[in-house]
Design a protein around this nucleic acid. Sequence first.
RNA 1: GGUCGCGUGGCCGAGUGGCUAGGCACAGGUCUGCAAAACCUCCUACAGCGGUUCGACUCCGCUCGCGACCUCCA
Length: 496
Amino acid sequence: MSDLYIYNSYTRQKEKFEPITPGHVGLYVCGPTVSGESHMGHARPYVTFDLVNRYLQHHGYKVRYVRNITDAGHFEEEGREAEDKVAKKAQLEKLEPMELVHKYTSLFHWAMRLFNCLEPSIEPTATGHIIEQINMIQDIIQKGYAYEVNGSVYFDVKKYAEKYPYGKLSGRVIDDLLETTRDLEGQDEKRNKVDFALWKKAPAEHIMRWTSPWGEGFPGWHIECSAMSSKYLGETFDIHGGGMDLQFPHHESEIAQSTIAHGHPPVNYWMHNNMITINGKKMGKSYNNVIKLTELFSGNHPILEQPYHPMVIRFYILQTHYRSTLDFSNEALQASEKAFRRLWEAYEVLQKLQPNTGAASDKALDAKVTTWCHECADFMNDDLNTAKVIANLFELAPVINSIKGGQVKPDALSGETYALLLQTFKTYLVDIMGMQPLQAAQSNKLDQVLSLLIDIRRDARQRKDFATSDQIRNTLAESGILLKDEKDGSVSYTIE
RNA sequence: GGUCGCGUGGCCGAGUGGCUAGGCACAGGUCUGCAAAACCUCCUACAGCGGUUCGACUCCGCUCGCGACCUCCA
């Protein structure tokens, strides 16, 4: 198999992917903060890195995919009254923090299943790794790069930057940061404004708290990912993924912490997906333009003209390269839905086609089809360009449909090419892109009922009793069951 | 204000120094009792202005517009 190239955010270029341990890949992805419901924007990294996971496996790697659950919460606003997000919401909703966390974790898992995202190998929680985080903080203090003030511990970014390239990942210049970082209240504890908290002292009212060498408190923003990734993937691992908005300060801080704790940078390849925008603006809490996943699936949101199936969202995400912004609109999503239906139907048609056994009678077409199939591998190897893979599948769809429709002879393609075609759809659409049909498998009973209606309608049509035949078709259509008269006289149906 | 990125046809979106993806919509046609689907055809774009080049949408500069990060954020 040819080489895989991925864009490394750290070096800002595409690089050949070479794992640390041959045959194995360590992949860490920043998971959800389960203090609230996931929204559409959150779907992007999880679909994107599900793709990464699947594709690495397709390449023959054994992948350990670690995706954390942030259930300890971060500060609502740095410097001001330190609040644990999870605890705050829990008080408002009169729920126990763990109850709340459990609820949103379950909801997240539910959404991941609907998106057909493979489960990570390990899904560690922040609250389950307090000791690891404390140990790491102590280590950093001992090495002289963190200091304690009033029960809180801060990382000394200025000192770190003297020796290490702080800001390289996010393209930041330390001197600029020292000058331009916004002046927030209550920063006097820090030696420099750029310093970030490793551990925060918990105010009396704070529900989530743990005993530490510095008193009762809770871990800072970034330490959990460093502690958990190194525990499960090692001090240096292959790929770290997440949304672009996490580059700074989250990932930059991870690099700094881990570099001090372990003596070397933690990650070989940084991958960042771009944002989903709505009317050109990033979807996010601060913009108040969030569409939650539950709303998306139900259509229950003022912006939404209809519900959208999780597979439609997935397809919509994969139709765009992961490093480009993706703008939400009903029009775009509806286009994706139609497109996906067409592509999936072509795949179903392909599976039912009687393959040719001999040579190709249309050499030119056979060659084109072969090329389109083989190109998919090149596109994926070029930084996972699913947009191009999908485009090629759409080149193949009319060929398939034309064979079925009779516009192209069944023996146009060789038996080998038939097999390649089938394998290409199976491999790329199903295995790598993780697509599933929109409609669930029908029950036998429904199938029997519909067969009966189809038979009655066929009789009516033969008698030219079109009133009856149309009544059957139209009434079924009203309930979302569409009948299609095929060229060969058979009738198929789809359920919306 | 600082840093970075983007601006592609009605819409969404790939991509490349010359061979001008793909999807959706639109229009015309084939097929069909009708419908739907399918198939064929049509629609030929790269913000503006300069520059480099035999040739730029693609490289460089400037201008305009937009966005992201700088604060929790996927």
